[in-house]
Design a protein around this nucleic acid. Structure first.
Lengths: 345, 345
DNA sequence: GCTCCTTTTGCAAACGTTTGCACCTTTGCT
DNA sequence: AGCAAAGGTGCAAACGTTTGCAAAAGGAGC
């Protein structure tokens, strides 16, 4: 495999018979005005014909802008992130940026390695969907050199702008829906409290309950160990044991809700006849599971696009005064119905 | 926002009191042996303490290796690609490579822009899951400078190694399963013939039919316009009109199969009682749709990992003698059953 | 024809690495 | 002690751009 060196400015210059700095100017739209149109034309033509392609490495080295940004997510392969990534990628591409993505799998060592790699590649900015902003590597380096945007997670320290779902309102929608159906004994299966989304949705649940059911006692919340189907199943068993008279479950995400389905099946409980359940996120195919899941839709693509937009602002030196809370939307399907009056066996 | 310049080799050198080339050698494990252990220790320490991070841009410029590779997919947000990306990313990260991903949305203009961007950033290699290898930009540049691996799609010209599913065998599994259940009047709803996966699976279907049902007439195949639920629904209607006596459908992917479900619902046809259907890919939640879909599982993560592995081989100058065909696996669920003898109304 | 602008072009210094080469120490051997 | 061979270190040239500055070229006004 022969590897002919790529054409350089110098070679184009030689072919045209000018100095290579002139070629550089002619090729760059911003400086093109400085060179005689006639020459520009010839340069453009021969560059094209020779197949010249800017060496971004060299130009980034000089200009200190890599036109690359880094995106770090816990798990690319989850159902949540792909549309977000799509939103980021296409927003940035329009502005000439390309996107390095990496997933940590929640492994702190890997997280570190990834951050290092991105810093060494001199990304112009970072979008993080990983929990920890505590990583000292960020303090020491990124925060002063390259802007950071937080996504799907927020950070109390307020050191970086964040883009998140309005989970308080979202969970409120689910609770409101169930209350309107006549439920009074609701429970929440929360995500891990260590994750800001888990904590936020639980807070939303408590708030909504206290607003809608003044009478009621302390809100019922059990915590799942992960945002997964298996954890949802286990948590649901736990819930039934501790609070047998619950008639409706607000799950912290769709997977947890599906885990509840599993437990319902195990125990011969019929949904929505015996119990109602709502999900969160509206993952693909939630309209096709049985019963079709009532859930809260979030704007994934928009989340990515917004994060990218904020990042671009910061890169261009503008200030980002506020965090962004994305609207959510209730999608009623058939996993929720009015409660039966008889308690479960 | 102050942007202090990052620490350079020179600064570390000054702090230690040696020439910066010595620092470079000490920091690079490959050349570390050349410098006195005592000095190395001091260099390592001050580098650490100063927070030195290699400027990969500069080093890539010099070494002509960017340690970045590019991945191009038609749609990041589809259900197919995320696990593949995960496989690629984590395989490459282990070797110190990072991954730029971009999605074309099947837009040729965008495809071009993306390829340009990656070339200009001097990626060390490319993994393409997009159909067209015909893009002249590839001929002119990439093929001679950076290795290319094809993924999920293959290319007859054999100019680049490919990693694909063994669709011939995979479809054979589905057909075999249905034949064993007693079906004799099978049909295939194919994906677009323009896509190599569509064409390959159709070929697999014809082959399997001719092997298993020697008696039978010409294999029944209708083509869906896309690998989508909507297209599947339409194609299924078409199929029923033209071949009313079919008792089993082999869909070219899960989404098309779900489209068939939609048509079944519209017409009050019961699956699997009146008709059987198989999917392809085993997307998430296919066990939860109603009825749970019998499908052919493909190894997505492995596909990504294999593609990455081949790419690394090529980057390191090794030859890749063969294409890779990944094993598939039948996942029997409840969308398939023995045929009723009565024809549908 | 001269000066004085205004374009247009060339020159050269960065940007931060890697690496062949030459130089200067040691060390080991006779 | 003398000498060669290692072993360490410094020097400087690349890698391919961008860009401030100087120089040249062309025009306008007198």
């Amino acid at each position: 495999m022969s590897k002919p060196s790529p054409i350089t400015l110098k070679q184009v210059a030689e072919a045209v018979g000018v100095h290579f700095s002139t070629v550089s100017r002619a090729l760059n739209p911003a400086t093109r005005a400085q060179v005689k149109p006639q020459i520009t034309a010839r340069i453009l033509e021969t560059a094209e014909q020779l197949g010249y392609r800017t060496n971004t490495l060299a130009s980034s080295l000089r200009t200190r802008r890599s036109k690359v940004i880094g995106v770090v997510v816990p798990d690319i392969a989850s159902l949540l992130f792909p549309p977000i990534l799509e939103g980021i990628e296409s927003t940035l591409l329009k502005e000439g940026y390309m996107t390095i993505v990496a997933n940590t799998g929640n492994d702190p060592v890997r997280h570190r390695r990834i951050l290092s790699g991105m810093i060494e590649r001199r990304v112009d900015g970072l979008i993080l969907a990983t929990a920890t902003l505590k990583d000292p590597i960020l303090d020491e380096w990124i925060s002063e050199r390259a802007p950071v945007i937080l996504m799907n997670r927020s950070d109390d320290s307020g050191r970086a702008p964040s883009v998140t779902n309005d989970d308080i309102r979202g969970v409120g929608l689910a609770v409101g829906h169930l209350v309107e159906l006549g439920h009074t004994r609701l429970a929440h299966i929360a995500g891990p409290h260590g994750l800001s989304t888990g904590a936020m949705r639980a807070r939303g649940f408590r708030l909504a309950i206290s607003e809608r059911l003044q009478s009621s006692a302390k809100p019922v919340v059990v915590e799942a160990e992960a945002f997964s189907r298996a954890a949802g199943r286990t948590a649901c068993i736990d819930l039934f044991e501790r609070y047998p008279d619950v008639t409706a479950i607000v799950a912290a995400n769709d997977l947890i809700a599906l885990g509840c389905y599993d437990t319902f099946l195990d125990r011969g409980i019929s949904c929505p006849r015996d119990i109602s359940v709502t999900g969160y996120n509206d993952a693909p195919f939630m309209d096709l599971v049985s019963p079709p899941l009532t859930t809260v839709r979030i704007k994934q693509r928009e989340m990515g696009a917004e994060a990218a937009r904020l990042l671009l602002m910061r890169i261009n030196g503008q200030d980002v005064p506020a965090d962004i809370l994305l609207r959510t939307e209730l999608v009623p399907r058939h996993s929720t119905a009015a409660p039966r009056d008889q308690p479960r066996s």
